[in-house]
Design a protein around this nucleic acid. Structure first.
Length: 286
DNA sequence: ATTGGTTCCTGCTGGC
DNA sequence: TGCCAGCAGGAACCAA
């Protein structure tokens, strides 16, 4: 479900609830997520304080206060990936806590009584524990491409990542090793804004085209974050509010509608690329 | 080494 | 109204 803007929105909501709070209890109601939860998962988290919430690509990074254990290891970052249907929700302290819903797989109880739930119907999500030192070298993060909202992500940086790629630009942008954090929706939207056909060979997106595409990616992501992400079916912010960027899609899910470009008005087309729907305007995108 | 296809899982929708 | 095929925001894994 969630792409970079949804994950970023969720991180901000979690930060408000979890930063500087302690985990007093961790329930693992189902361990068989995409990958099984690590051994002694709850034990390793219980009693520890949350220092900060961050994000890398589509991973939520929950930083925990240093806690040296007997064997010398310091597991101090909890990595959460939401897969397709994962949610993180926060319920403030209540006299009678709400009963757990179906698919609440991991439940964190904070020292102020708040309850943070990881809910994931499809169980494509996962959690892992990592050391803060050398976090970027963790196997789950090591191969990731640049963050598209970093100031140094620009046309030349994108062009360099695409050089020599003999795959359609759509597929290249979905590859987290090329750019981190994009998914099916925002790739479609960014390509539309940049006027680039999803079928164009990635290696030919250089120079001015790469500059336009890098700018389009940054713009669409920033606008989506400002709107709280896109709610199609699953995405909910930790506080229960919905995102509303879906109302601003130019092409995603709009097969057959007229192109938003007033000079164009061609019909939006849907094709399948590497097994996934691509929406685009065949007139405007070349 | 790349690249494309398949698979994991559940829930919802649209067509019959 | 009811049933079921097909599809969904991801990415690891496999084979060529």
């Amino acid at each position: 479900m969630p792409e970079l803007p949804e994950v970023e929105t969720i991180c901000r909501g979690l930060a408000a609830a979890m930063a500087n709070r302690r985990l007093v209890r961790v329930e693992t109601r189902r361990r068989d997520l995409r990958r099984p939860l690590p051994d002694k998962f709850a034990e390793r988290l219980t009693g520890r304080a949350v220092v900060a919430i961050g994000r890398r690509a589509k991973y939520i990074l929950i930083r925990l206060k240093q806690d040296k254990r007997e064997d010398g290891e310091e597991d101090d970052v909890l990595l959460v990936h939401l897969g397709m249907s994962g949610r993180m929700t926060v319920a403030a302290s209540e006299i009678a806590p709400a009963p757990h819903a179906a698919h609440d797989h991991v439940v964190f109880h904070l020292d102020d009584g708040a309850v943070v739930r990881f809910n994931d119907a499809r169980r494509f999500g996962s959690m892992a524990l990592a050391c803060a030192a050398g976090l970027e070298r963790h196997p789950l993060l090591a191969g990731l491409g640049p963050e598209p909202l970093d100031p140094d992500f620009d046309g030349p940086a994108l062009a360099a990542r695409l050089r020599g790629k003999r795959t359609p630009i759509k597929a290249a942008l979905l590859d987290q090793r090329v750019v981190a954090g994009l998914g099916n929706i925002y790739v479609c939207e960014a390509l539309f804004r940049a006027g680039i056909s999803p079928r164009r060979m990635a290696a030919t997106v250089q120079g001015e085209r790469a500059r336009r595409l890098a700018a389009a990616i940054g713009d669409v992501l920033n606008e989506a974050i400002a709107a709280g992400g896109s709610t199609l079916r699953d995405h909910v912010r930790p506080n229960g509010e919905l995102g509303y960027f879906q109302h601003h899609f130019a092409v995603y899910g709009r097969e057959g509608e007229r192109c938003a470009d007033c000079r164009c008005r061609a019909a939006i087309k849907r094709i399948v690329q590497s097994g996934r729907s691509t929406f685009f305007c065949p007139q405007r995108q070349r």
